[in-house]
Design a protein around this nucleic acid. Structure first.
Lengths: 146, 146
DNA sequence: CATCTAATTGAAAAAATTTTTCATTTGGAG
DNA sequence: CTCCAAATGAAAAATTTTTTCAATTAGATG
């Protein structure tokens, strides 16, 4: 299924129209590797839809967020941006609570935890984010030296 | 260790002063059960420090975020708020990607995953957040009916 | 405990962001 | 093709955040 079909499916369910502005904004967010800020979305989407106004960006983001198409996400530098929730990759990282460094890791062994939650809650789970917090090796070393 | 000592320790390391405003804001955030918005922080902290200005709230939040004392966090309704990162409770929830309902669950069986990450990254992990996304039982039922 | 200094503060102003209003345009059902 | 509700852009309004600056304060030093 094409990206634009995902958009169309969700919009039409809610009696919403598939417009040029919405297509441009959706393509912008869905094709980005990182969460995008509102000005970034505006700039990139305007290339596909030159008449696009900032007001429409705000309104479209609200619509898409409600429709579950996008999601507000914290980037590694602490600021917020939008990502596609349909195509969003899973996120697994560990962050140092002292120096704030972020390290990604490959996440294994979650199957049992997830299955247990599915049984307990009745949800059918599609994806997960796991954020770990701790102290990185170099901060650990420094704190021992004091 | 008292809450205010945690604050003092981190501030003094960075040559920052322990002021009435900072104490009030810290107590406000550290004693809250939920992430607090900036207006909420302002209102609550003002009770402990009546002269507090909104500008100081902004500046103090920036200082505390940099110092690793607090963290921007997404609340269940999607808005953002600040939580104490030192005392923050772990968060485990599953959210329906359709109706947005959030259900907390008791998280078990993470020990192996965490130990594996500690070995791979060298971090000493203190706590974790696990967010699961899927479809809740009632949305599942509805989608089958169509 | 009095003095000193850099850090911090609050108020006002400025800047930036977000929302509202409204007349016009557009998607898509019939 | 026609029609109408939904969507749009521009301008204005409202709200949020940042900057500036003079006054105050924490806490180090003597």
């Amino acid at each position: 299924m094409e990206r634009v079909d995902v958009l169309n499916e969700r919009l039409s369910k809610a009696n919403l129209k598939l417009t040029k502005a919405r297509k441009a904004i959706w393509e912008t967010i869905a094709s980005a590797a990182e969460p995008l800020s509102i000005p970034q979305i505006m700039n990139r989407a305007k290339k596909m839809c030159p008449s696009l106004g900032l007001v429409t960006v705000y309104r479209t983001l609200a619509v898409m967020e409600k429709a579950g198409l996008i999601k507000l996400f914290q980037t590694k530098d602490g600021s917020m941006g939008y990502v596609s929730s349909v195509l969003a990759a899973e996120s697994h990282h560990v962050q140092c609570i002292i120096c704030k460094k972020v390290v990604e890791f490959e996440c294994t062994g979650m199957e049992d935890t997830i299955r247990a939650v599915e049984e307990k809650t009745g949800f059918c789970i599609e994806r997960h984010n796991l954020e770990l917090f701790g102290i990185c090796p170099s901060c650990m070393k420094k704190s021992l030296q004091k």
